[in-house]
Design a protein around this nucleic acid. Structure first.
Lengths: 232, 232
DNA sequence: TATAATTTGTACCATTTGGTTCATTTGGTC
DNA sequence: GACCAAATGAACCAAATGGTACAAATTATA
């Protein structure tokens, strides 16, 4: 009975053919949602197993223990999200539109991946203890900075951007604004109402975030010229 | 033996005299640290009880169950943090210094209260379910917006600030930058190195955050004039 | 001082939870 | 088709965990 569904996935080769990779990914998918929803200690291995196409036995067979599963979930989540960012082609754009597009994309990308955001929150609650053991992450994240660096360098060259800004700090700022928007929606809403989290509110917020980054980066003399201001 | 210490706290009135409020606060103090460190499901009632001057029995006597304790911890944390913000007197300052001081204060205040930040993170993981049942929070948070509103209104009047900004969005932005700085330190460090979290890195970051808010708020024509720029 | 109400300590319990044991099935290979 | 290694299922377990029963101590009160 458990196999009526999974059989389809598993018989990619001849006949039955065991397909560990598919089973592994099925477990990770389910576990991702479960950890994101309930946290590390909040998630239940039994619950994860029940929602999986396979059994608890398999979770321990493939991942050793709960922590091992959580760790793989984390890494997979990072990989997938960073993968999604790679499509973004900014090299052929002028510095200002490139920066604008990058900010908009980051803002939307975070919004579209709340489970990833939640996993990162959870990992931060744990002081990054599980990501520590995976040297893969630096490699995975480095390109983000380099891309931003190139945009900034071009903007400097063209005397569009002011000097004295580091790509790392700029990335930090873009991340902060985009991350917080998703991570703290619940408490912010309870404290100050839903306004900012309606469709209109989010659109406005995105625009403001873009403006904030651009006004920070542009040479002041160019701000009026490059930013449209509808009502004043 | 348990009473050798607590007795001192408890005999504020005549003789022994039970002092529930002191016991309650002792429990909350310990529980705050424990929840902040381990999350809701991660924290252990037994552990909290052990570190307390009193017993597990008392926790259930005063707070009903684990959730009840967590809820009180949350509310108390909010109250205490907001209390700390009230000392800030901005009314007698000119709009620009007032805004600058507010941003700097928020940035430092978050940094100084990591346990509060962690509790808010945890509560967001739980979709704000426990704060929902406490109508006190809106009341507790409203003043922050009003204070910012007054600063902005004065800045507008003096033609220092540009039009079209809402106090709520501005507060959101200040919060985002200050919150993220503490909440995501672990994963950000693992991804991009410790640079931004050394003493020098944090000082720079604070300065950049202030600049970002001011450049966003000031009328462009006034930026060069009001912001010092040492190296260019 | 008898009595009622509040407060606290000890021992205990039912359930849940992460994790395992053992046996079986499956697919490939000689 | 005999045999082996990989993969899987079901029942089971010890420990941890939130929570409680019961009784004792303390205080206030009449």
């Amino acid at each position: 009975m458990l196999h009526t569904d999974s059989a389809k996935l598993l018989e990619t080769k001849t006949g039955w053919k065991q397909n560990p990779e598919a089973v592994r990914m099925d477990i990770i998918k389910i576990a991702t949602a479960e950890f994101a929803q309930n946290g590390l200690s909040g998630a239940r291995v039994n619950e994860i197993a029940a929602k999986t196409k396979t059994s608890k036995r398999m979770i321990y067979y493939y991942f050793g223990d709960k922590d091992g599963l959580y760790q793989q979930v984390l890494i997979e989540a990072y990989r997938e999200v960073r993968e999604g960012e790679r499509e973004l082609d900014l090299e052929h754009l002028e510095p200002l539109p490139a920066l604008k597009k990058l900010v908009e994309f980051t803002f939307e990308h975070h919004r579209r991946n709340p489970d990833f955001i939640r996993l990162v929150m959870i990992e931060n609650i744990h002081h990054g203890d599980y990501l520590k053991h995976s040297p893969l992450i630096q490699t995975l994240n480095q390109p983000v900075i380099e891309r931003l660096e190139r945009i900034y360098a071009r903007g400097l060259e063209q005397q569009l951007f002011r000097a004295g800004i580091t790509a790392l700090e700029l990335h930090w700022q873009i991340s902060a604004l985009s991350f917080f928007n998703v991570s703290n929606e619940a408490t912010f809403t309870l404290s100050f109402g839903k306004q900012l989290f309606t469709k209109a509110g989010q659109a406005s917020l995105k625009k403001q975030v873009v403006e904030m980054i651009l006004r920070f980066t542009l040479r002041p003399a160019l701000i009026e010229q490059y930013l449209s201001h509808p009502q004043a």
